[in-house]
Design a protein around this nucleic acid. Structure first.
Length: 553
RNA sequence: UUUCCUGUGGUGCAAUGGUAGCACGUCUGAUUUUGGUUCAGAAGAUUGUGGUUCGAGUCCAUGCAGGAAAACCA
């Protein structure tokens, strides 16, 4: 089996670098800022960075990019680690940019000593005004030509806490007329009298992203520093610092971030959904977070497969949600046990089956699995719950299910024929009366009767009640980010439907948290952590494809 | 209007000067004790114009379109 897959552009660069001897081993890193939960977009970056070193050898570091103490928290550090491990990856070293604060400080001093940085006492507004615009060049700060000695003294005093927040900054001395705005004397250190989640109150000055990220890569001897497209224009600065500091030459490569239809991906917006209670938390099953997908019933395998299928390139993209759904169906189809649950029950009475009789049927758990996934017992009796939508008083064309006089098979059980039905005063069907064919028992059918339809059911006397949470997309438009007005105007009002009285097989009564099932003919469901012994909760991960429903829209 | 990045079926990714292919989605049909799965098949694409070449999605020029860049965020 030689499955020839073409390389993406990053793999090509890596193979060239390895073949030419530019680097002996590959070292990558995954560098989240601990200011939120990881989402499916991060999963793309995780699979890329860890996947590359799995493929080519070498290793991947986990580095928390914690240079902004006011937004970062240990809670996020913990959840991010859990999510990466759950996805199936293991980092070589657990590192923090804050580990390098001393080194970074020395780097800044070196820049000053080489007349490549200065302390600026302008305000943020003044600096912005002097910066120019993309089409007009900027002007030099009046502090740009301070002496090296004065800059060294001022920077020391910044570190020592002699200035208030915002009083001054350290800036790299590059070129105020560069066409690249980031090269117009970027700020490299700012004053923040804030407690850091790891260094506490040791520092009151913190490096900016641009003065931390590349240097951290270099310190760790990262060979290929992979990030998303919005950092393309930062690369010139990234290289400039490495060159001027004369440190290990890491290189930055950029790929296009993931966008998914019907979802938002920005951490800011996700945080807003959590804070405003639009969702129940970071792990709400409707969230595109790793923890949300996990709770929804997605498996690590399915997410990795998804990341493999979407590919890596440099053009903006908008992946259809249907691909993610395909990946989870594909995995669960092979692995989830198939059981019966009735979500919108209506009573069926089998008129020729003795009321005092019951029998135990045996059902295979998963015909796709090698050993059929094992077998389970399913109780059967004369009163069942079936799905309301499986009966039509006046059958449509090509209707294979129940209707007056029609026959269907009860999955794992007998063929039944609809003899009659009962309606209440409002015209709602309340009961369906059938006769069963004793010789048609599953596995030992001698009736010779063939039916087109098979429906699922649960024995009324043996059924357990369950709560089913049916989730749908969180937004009702493909690209909420690109619509007029606020993205929250486009929330899908039907993103969750809670069914309180569904009936499930007794087999399901002792499900484990997070265990996954196919409810036959309905979809894939996952046992939720909020369940209690008298309130079993299942989250719908994704529905089964439904050719009938599609054709009848 | 400056600089940079990107333009291939509905969507995403390939084709590295030589027959435009794969997957999801869509639509048929077969099979089926899940209207699921599986299987077979179909429709559907190179941003325009010039040029180089025996030959261009690919190279060159020039339009056009989309995105990014002016946080003491990352």
């Amino acid at each position: 089996m030689s499955e020839e897959r073409s390389l993406n552009f990053i793999e090509e660069i890596i193979e060239n670098d390895l073949n030419s001897g530019k680097y002996k081993t590959l070292v990558t890193r995954f560098p989240p800022e601990p200011n939120g939960y990881l989402h499916i977009g991060h999963a793309k970056a995780i699979c890329l960075n860890f996947g590359l070193t799995q493929k080519y050898g070498g290793y991947t570091n986990l580095r928390f990019d914690d240079t902004n103490p006011v937004t970062e928290k240990t809670e996020y550090v913990d959840s991010q680690q859990e999510d990466i491990k759950w996805l199936g990856f293991q980092w070589k070293n657990e590192l923090y940019t804050s580990d390098y604060f001393d080194t970074l400080y020395d780097f800044a001093v070196k820049l000053i000593q080489n007349n490549l940085a200065y302390v600026d006492h302008n305000t943020a507004e003044e600096i912005a005004a002097q910066k120019g615009t993309p089409t007009e060049s900027g002007v030099d700060s009046q502090y740009r030509n301070r002496s090296i000695e004065e800059n060294l003294d001022l920077f020391t005093r910044m570190k020592n806490g002699e200035f208030e927040d915002g009083a001054c900054t350290l800036r790299a001395k590059i070129d105020m007329s560069s066409p690249n705005m980031l090269m117009r004397d970027p700020i490299v250190y700012r004053i923040k009298h804030a407690e850091h989640h790891r260094t506490g109150n040791k520092w009151c000055i913190y490096p900016m992203y641009d003065f931390a990220h590349g240097q951290s890569d270099s310190i760790e001897e990262i060979t290929h520093s992979i990030c998303t497209l919005e950092y393309v224009s930062h690369r010139e600065l990234y290289d400039w610092f490495i060159e001027k500091l004369e440190i290990f030459p890491s290189h930055q490569y950029e790929f296009a971030r993931l966008n998914l239809t019907y979802t938002v991906m920005s951490k800011r917006k996700l945080l807003q959904l959590v804070n405003e209670g639009v969702v129940s938390g970071w792990d709400d099953p409707r969230m595109p977070t790793i923890s949300g997908l996990r709770r929804r019933g997605y498996t690590p395998e399915s997410i990795r497969e998804f990341c493999e299928r979407i590919g890596i390139a440099k053009r903006e993209n908008l992946i259809e949600l249907s691909l993610l759904e395909f990946c989870i169906r594909e995995h669960l189809n092979k692995t989830a046990n198939r059981v019966m649950a009735v979500t919108d029950p209506i009573k069926m009475v089998i008129t020729n089956y003795p009321a005092d009789q019951e029998e135990i049927l045996v059902g295979e758990n998963n015909p796709e699995a090698e050993d059929k996934g094992g077998y389970r017992e399913i109780p059967f009796s004369n009163e069942l719950w079936i799905e309301r939508e499986d009966f039509m008083e006046e059958p449509a064309k090509k209707w294979f299910r129940l209707a007056p006089g029609a026959m269907v098979r009860l999955k794992h059980a007998y063929i039944v024929k609809c003899e009659d039905f009962v309606k209440d005063a409002d015209g709602n069907v309340t009961e369906i009366h059938c006769s069963y064919i004793p010789e048609s028992k599953s596995g030992e059918d001698t009736s010779g009767i063939h039916v087109k339809g098979t429906i699922h059911w649960v024995s009324k006397a043996h059924a357990k009640t369950a709560e089913i949470r049916v989730y749908d997309r969180l937004f009702s438009v493909e690209s909420p980010d690109n619509e007029e007005g606020d993205f929250k105007d486009y929330l899908n009002p039907n993103s969750i439907e809670v069914i309180k009285n569904a009936y499930i097989e007794p087999y399901l009564a002792n499900a484990d948290v997070n265990s996954k099932y196919q409810f036959i003919r309905k979809g894939y469901y996952c046992f939720d952590k909020e369940s209690t012994s008298d309130n079993l909760i299942f989250n719908r991960t994704v529905g089964l494809k439904d050719a009938w429903a599609k054709g009848n829209k």
